[in-house]
Every structure is written in C-alpha cells, then in structure tokens.
Design a protein around this nucleic acid. Structure first.
Lengths: 143, 143
DNA sequence: GCTTGACCTGGAGCGTGCTCCAGGTTCTAC
DNA sequence: GTAGAACCTGGAGCACGCTCCAGGTCAAGC
C-alpha cells in the first residue's frame, strides 16, 4: 500500500523484510522467527546476507496467516510446512491435515455462534434492566 | 454427571470445589486462580476453610466461561467482575462492555467464515491434485 | 480415633508465541 | 567516502493463562 513496488509477478526475490512485514502485518522479528522455526523455508539473500522474499514466499506467508487466524498452532504449522517441503508425495497427508483443521474450525464457529446468541440474551436482559429502572437501585441482578 | 448431588436450586453453599470443577470443566487450580484474580468474589467456606460454592457462583462461572470461550481476556473479565461487584449502578457500563465484546465477536466470526471458505478452496485444490495424479510426482504445487 | 483422600495457601514454573536487545554488518543517498 | 537507516544473528525476556509443588489442615468412613 505504501511501498512503491508492485507485487512481483515472477519468482524474482525482490521484497525486503520491511516490505513483507508491511504487506502481511507481521513484524520483522516474527518473520525471522517463522523462518527460524521452519514455517518458511530459508528465504533468499543478497550477497550481503539480507533477505529478499519472492511472490511465492508471500503467498505461503498469507496461507500461514490464514491457518494462524483460524487457530492452528505453530507446531501444527511446522508439521504442515515440513510436509510441503517433502513435495508431492505428501499431498494426501496435507489434505488430511487441512480437512481435520477445517472440521475443527466448523466446530469452533458453531460454538461461537451459540455463545453469541447467549450473549445476545444477556444483553437483552441488561437492556430491560436499564429501561425499567435506569440507574436506580432496587432491581437486583445476579449477573 | 458423576456427582450424586442435584444442582442446588437455592443459594445454599453446598458444592465442593471438586463438584464445581466437574460441572464447569475448570481445574481445581483454575477455580482457585480465578478467585484469587477477582473473577469471582470470595467463595463461602466451611468452618474448616474449605470452599462451598452455591448456585449463583456456578451460574456466574458459566457466564465467565462464555466470555472466555468468545475470546475475552482475563483482564477484561476482571473489569466486568469488578463492575458487577459495584451493583446496579454499573449496569450501563456492563451493557456497554458486553455490546462491544459482542461486536468484536461478530467480526471474528465473519473473519473465520471468510477463512473457512479460503480453506475450502485450498482443500478442493488438493483434492484435484490427488485425483489427477494420485501419489505421482510431476504435478508440482506451490503450496 | 485413625486413616486416607480432599482440600488449603503462597509461590514457583511452564508452554505458547512472540518481542526485545546487543553488537555488528550492509545498503542507500548524498 | 560517509552518514544514517535498514538489516543481520543469537539469545534473553515477556505477557498470558494457567499448572504444579511443598508443606500443611480438614473431613468422611470404618
């Protein structure tokens, strides 16, 4: 958004860590931590050892973010990243992981919606309390 | 479920910490931690200083669990518990907190559903890979 | 009245996921 | 060529939410 660079369409490693941080919302430290943890394969470097990310790195990071946002742990992401590094032979395993994660996500969304309805009831309760005796004592409440 | 005690309908403090742990799914340690942290007011004690919870304690704990499951931090729950302890004068503030929490929850559910759709696309992609070239190399994949 | 399991307190420790720091190197603009 | 910003590494530190531990006291059944 702020960077003058267009997104690279090719595999040229042109993005600095600052640019990737800005695009992903991850900090520089987190990007380095993810690399050290094996969530992303070793990123390309300049001759002076500075990181240069390519479009594939960015796409993978965005996928990792999706996994993270849906509650996957670093440990599971490490497992997924390792499978990915093994290449095509691991496609079935990766698919199984994603399906399991997707199922857990569906469960969590359902639970959140149930809890949201219960919160709505509580909110209604408070609204009734307020409209009946706004600011006045006497309408005792347990919760 | 395992306890022979029925749920107390009144305010008699009859539930031991073990019974409350079983009903809420919280550990003994967590129940004591929540009390120390001020999430629940000091629970009644026997003459021998052992905790005995009543029905209101249980209902409040279940409400706290709902807040926790929907992502509220301990710090925010402390704030809410403190408002509750202030009585009716804080109803408006509590309502405001709940509304804000509810709005954040709606945002998070929407984000999860978006991410779930993206995961479905990824799963479809893997399924296609598998059905086209099951277990065979050659169908290279970026993710 | 004794045993045995449940419970008490204060405080230390832990797993997760970063975040910060020191001390040094590299890059960019002038 | 030089200043200053950006980047590097290894490792320590931190916030959160518990969880465990030691060293006791209490309660229920026999």
């Amino acid at each position: 958004m702020t960077s003058g660079h267009p997104l690279p369409q090719d595999r040229e490693p042109t993005l600095t860590i600052a640019e990737v941080a800005e695009r992903t919302g991850l900090s520089h430290d987190t990007l380095r931590y993810y690399e050290k943890a094996g969530l992303i394969e070793r990123v390309g470097r300049t001759t002076g050892n500075q990181r240069r990310y390519d479009a594939a790195d960015l796409a993978w990071l965005e996928f990792l973010l999706r996994l993270r946002e849906t509650g996957m742990s670093i440990a599971d992401m490490q497992r997924f990243a390792q499978l990915r590094a093994e290449g095509d032979v691991s496609v079935a395993d990766r698919l199984a992981m994603l399906r399991e994660h997707r199922a857990g996500l569906a469960d969590r969304i359902r639970a959140l919606r149930r809890n949201a309805r219960a919160l709505d009831d509580k909110i209604d309760h408070y609204e009734r309390l307020l409209s009946e005796a706004p600011g006045q004592p006497g309408s005792e409440d347990l919760t």
